[in-house]
Design a protein around this nucleic acid. Structure first.
Lengths: 201, 201
DNA sequence: ACCTGAACACCGTTCAAGT
DNA sequence: ACCTGAACACCGTTCAAGT
């Protein structure tokens, strides 16, 4: 006879999930809401995905791919100090435009929900290229982690509303990145141009 | 006749909730599991708490009170640089011993679940005392926020498993705090003792 | 005054039955 | 080969009924 034809696709499901997550937060990301958005009933989703957790993992991965696209060109900036600030700024801008998804990235996810090591490496590569040039290959990983830690901490405090009172938040972020990077630059195997003392910006 | 006597208390409920949260994560913190632990049925919990969300808020507040007890004495250290490192180290140690609860602190909670501004102020006070002495009152708030941001970012990456490969994590945290603080110290209204150049540790 | 069983509206997920 | 209704085991929460 006539077997039922596919009425949706994995891509469409993940796209619907991303919209629901950003619009209403994790609680709004229900299998039924996703199904309704792609014009199907909830049980049909299990033809494309094994579980809701797998859907979350797919959303995270797709979002990280977007981030990779943003960061990759910045890793090639001729001046590593300028490049690092650009990467940090772009990373923050990305987080602020996908706040709900961003929060998920650093959550303790079940191991199945984690992005692959390969994807993680591609996200970090532009930053690593810059810190390698700034402090040498031996210290590059640690420096990259410290910059990421600062940026992530700042952003998650910002998203949690910790900066609601007072001050120019953009400027504070820039100051912090500069302070950290100049502190790290003291590690440099080769002296930076000019004095080794960090200037007052 | 004989009206039913209380078989549990709010304190006991919150304590049970804290244990369940740390043992099994947020998913294990169900009203039924809490009720069973305090020897009662789930509906009875609603005599002491309006909702599960209120229970989470109470858990967060009690945990923050513990943190305040840890940090307060450290804020009075005579050397602000040493004090800042001690506060950062103690903050991290606290987070690592209550990882599940710590994750909740920086989540986007419904406004009802947020700790009160008063409690938040008491958590921040020791750090503010130190940054005030380090960079002056005008810059103290911003400096405190940057140190908190770094520490939080580092810890949440650590909890998410980002540092699983390689390196001494304790040492990396200390390095990062030092780099940031020395960067901030460049803001100081009064010069620090000795050279203004940060030493290589 | 507190406790309880039963019920309600939701979840995610499974599966037999349809086309 | 995909879709669906019905069902299952769970949630948080409400409430009338017990003591």
């Amino acid at each position: 006879v006539s077997p039922a034809r596919a009425r949706t696709s994995l891509d469409e499901i993940v796209a619907a999930g991303r919209e629901l997550l950003e619009t209403g937060g994790p609680d709004a990301l229900t299998m039924q809401a996703v199904a309704q958005r792609v014009g199907v009933k909830a049980p049909s989703l299990y033809k494309r995905l094994p579980s809701r957790e797998a859907l979350v993992a797919a959303i995270v991965s797709e979002t990280l791919e977007d981030l990779v696209r943003d960061l990759t060109p910045l890793g090639r900036h001729p001046d590593p100090l300028v490049g690092l600030r650009a990467v940090a700024t772009s990373y923050r801008a990305f987080a602020l435009t996908h706040p709900r998804t961003y929060e998920l990235l650093f959550q303790v996810l079940a191991s199945d929900s984690r992005p692959t090591p390969e994807l993680n490496e591609r996200v970090t590569a532009p930053l690593m290229a810059l810190t390698t040039r700034l402090v040498g290959a031996e210290r590059a990983l640690e420096a990259a982690r410290l910059v990421t830690a600062f940026a992530h901490g700042f952003i998650s405090m910002e998203l949690a509303g910790a900066f609601r009172l007072g001050g120019d938040v953009d400027e504070a972020f820039g100051f912090g990145v500069d302070a950290l990077i100049h502190g790290l630059a003291g590690w440099s195997p080769r002296r930076s141009s000019g004095s080794r003392c960090s200037s007052r910006r």
